[in-house]
């Protein structure tokens, strides 16, 4: 199952550094579907989900960025109090630790939120979650949901 691909970029914690990759993607006409910026005292990591990840990777590499590609698990969570807590119980039952997570922008309320999770060994994790009855969306499903 083709999972959601994330591009991660190394950034120095300096004014103006976030602009470089964003400009490069902009010039190439690549839309950012969602993103998260992690920062430490010294450096930051920009994590991106885009539509054409392979083209985006080349564009970013040509702009001089260091890029890695990671699989993420996209999971829909009920948009109500306790929705995420319920899902995390499933993670616990599957003995899975979460590295980090972030949401897709949801726009109008539609009853559920779409989150992406970074876990060790994503394929194995997806399989274990499926056995717990958790549905992991593949890349096409995510795109379709965002389009719809």
């Amino acid at each position: 199952m083709p999972l959601v691909k994330q591009l991660s970029l190394f950034l120095e914690n300096e004014p103006g550094h976030l602009k470089v990759p964003c400009q490069a993607l902009g010039r190439a006409g690549i839309d950012i579907l969602t993103m998260s910026l992690a920062d430490t005292q010294q450096f930051g990591i920009l994590r991106l989900v885009v539509e054409e990840w392979e083209r985006a990777r080349s564009v970013l590499q040509e702009a001089g960025c260091v890029v890695t590609v990671t699989d993420l698990l996209a999971i829909e969570v009920p948009d109500r109090p306790g929705g995420l807590a319920g899902l995390l119980e499933q993670f616990e039952a599957a003995k899975l630790g979460i590295e980090y997570l972030y949401p897709f922008p949801s726009g109008t309320r539609r009853g559920s939120m779409l989150l992406v999770f970074r876990l060790d060994d994503p394929l194995e994790a997806a399989e274990r979650l499926r056995r717990q009855g958790v549905r992991v969306l593949d890349r096409a499903e995510v795109l379709a949901r965002l389009a719809g």
Binding site: Q6, S8, F10, T40, F43, I45, V66, V67, T68, T70
Partner: peptide, 15 residues
Amino acid sequence: EVTPEVFSDRIRALE
């Protein structure tokens, strides 16, 4: 300099 070979999406790994 960070290279693709050593770069990770995890802060923990880079630290």
